[in-house]
Amino acid sequence: MFPIRDHNPSGRTPYVTYALIALNVVIFIGYWPLFNDARALNQFFFDWAMIPARVTQMGEYSGLFTSMFLHGGLMHLVGNMLFLWIFGDNMEDRMGHLPYLAFYLVSGMGASLAQVLAGPLSMVPMVGASGAIAGVMGGYLLLFPFARVDILVIFIVFFRIITIPAAILLVLWFAIQLFSGIGVDAGNGGVAYWAHAGGFVIGAALTLPLFLRLGGRRFWNMTDGKPPHPEADYTYRRTSIPRVRYPK
């Protein structure tokens, strides 16, 4: 299942979300040539990624921040930016530009620390914005659980777009990260499941004060659990242009 869009575009321009997407893309393009040289790429990630053992054994914390803007490949980047584009605009709209930026960065660094706790002696570099974006998703679940999201379902040769409440997608995603993390040795690399799960929980926790200030469950009742904007209409309409039928 791949989310492709939500039905509630932001009520104002999400400048921070757009800037984060642009920054991630520009940085990726900057070191793209290194993918042709494995040694140079590994050295680049060693210098700028988050390596748990360097945090716990050497007290080097800069990677907690810099790793959020690095990606291990093109599809890694595209997938993360898609999730940020879908869920980030409404969170920025509700929080405000600068508070949202702080929320994003804190979620990302907290997600990295969660991965450190899961594998404190690991020398495997961790890169990606997914921890910070997981924080955005955790906050989105709390504020807008019934927002409608279109997902692309792919099953062998079956392709279909269906619409579901955001809560179903987000809870399922979190459960996958949590149970996958339990079954994987965090010190041996692979997907940083604990960074994803940790970022999600941190994002929800950071959003909780805002949720309570908005009225808690009363906020859901006022907005039906959706962003307070008119829903986008993605249905296809018949064209008013008449068809021209050619004689046989």
Rank of each mutant, 00 (worst) to 15 (best):
S130G: 12
L178K: 01
F211L: 12
F35R: 04
W32L: 15
Y15K: 11
F146M: 15
I29R: 03
D224E: 12
F200H: 01
T239A: 14
R243H: 09
S10T: 13
M68L: 15
L170Y: 02
I133K: 00
S240I: 04
I133T: 10
I162S: 04
L74Q: 05
D233T: 03
M126H: 12
R12H: 11
V106Q: 01
L214Q: 10
I176A: 13
S67A: 11
A49T: 08
T207L: 09
I86G: 01
N80E: 13
S240Q: 14
V26Y: 02
R243I: 13
I21E: 07
G11V: 07
P165L: 05
M137P: 03
D89V: 04
I86K: 05
N90Y: 03
H76S: 14
P209T: 09
A53D: 10
Y140W: 06
V26N: 03
G135A: 02
A192G: 11
N80C: 13
R217C: 00
G187T: 01
S122T: 05
F2Q: 15
P125N: 02
A38N: 09
S130L: 07
G216H: 04
L41Q: 11
L172M: 13
F83V: 09
A19W: 02
L70F: 06
G73C: 05
L113R: 05
P228R: 02
G135N: 09
R12M: 07
G215F: 00
G11A: 03
A192E: 09
V16H: 03
D93W: 13
Y236W: 11
I156G: 02
R148V: 06
S62I: 07
D37S: 10
F219M: 07
A167W: 10
A186W: 01
T223S: 01
L77H: 01
T17G: 08
L214H: 05
N36C: 02
F83I: 13
D150Q: 08
D93H: 09
A38D: 14
G79T: 08
L82A: 11
W85C: 11
N221M: 13
P33F: 02
P120Y: 13
